[in-house]
């Protein structure tokens, strides 16, 4: 009896966490910006910094230079440098750029990091998946907010 209620409580908690996470199809944009957190859990800038560098995650450094990462050997030249980006965009605008930058810059080369479908010929292992998880997006947004 006791066991069951603990299990039930755990299940309820899990559902609550899932409900708080906005699924890719439900993100609400306002002029390219997304004001509502995707998870409700504050982003962790330290993890965001890692996701930014990681070639299998954000790999943002492939296209953007970022002086905060001068220890990294190679920075891309395809997008603008992200130094001081928090001074140019609000948190909501940065979240929007990460979820799907095509709502801000039509036809941009920058991938949409929190979009799960609508792709042509995706590899099977990425089918229906987003590049970053909702929390990773929040973490990168928190990191970008430190680039003053």
């Amino acid at each position: 009896m006791k066991r069951t209620s603990v299990l039930l409580a755990a299940a309820v908690l899990a559902t609550a966490a899932q409900a708080a996470e906005t699924s890719p199809g439900d993100v609400v944009f306002d002029n390219g910006a997304v004001s509502r957190s995707l998870t409700g859990v504050p982003g962790d800038p330290a993890n965001g910094r890692k996701v930014f560098m990681n070639r299998k995650k954000g790999n943002c450094l492939a296209c953007h230079a970022n002086a905060d990462m001068h220890d990294q050997l190679f920075h891309g030249e395809i997008g603008p440098t992200l130094d001081g980006v928090a001074g140019r965009y609000s948190e909501a605008e940065l979240r929007g750029l990460l979820v799907n930058s095509k709502n801000t810059y039509e036809d941009t080369i920058m991938p949409a990091f929190y979009r799960a479908d609508g792709f042509k010929r995706p590899l099977d292992k990425f089918k229906g998946k987003t590049i970053l998880t909702a929390q990773e997006v929040e973490d990168v947004v928190a990191y970008l907010m430190t680039l003053k």
């Binding site: 991938p111 792709f119 590049i131």
Partner: peptide, 14 residues
């Protein structure tokens, strides 16, 4: 010129 894949890029983009 067709964008493909999860990164949604065409040969021309690069």
């Amino acid at each position: 010129y067709t964008r493909v894949g999860q990164l949604d890029l065409a040969c021309a983009n690069c």
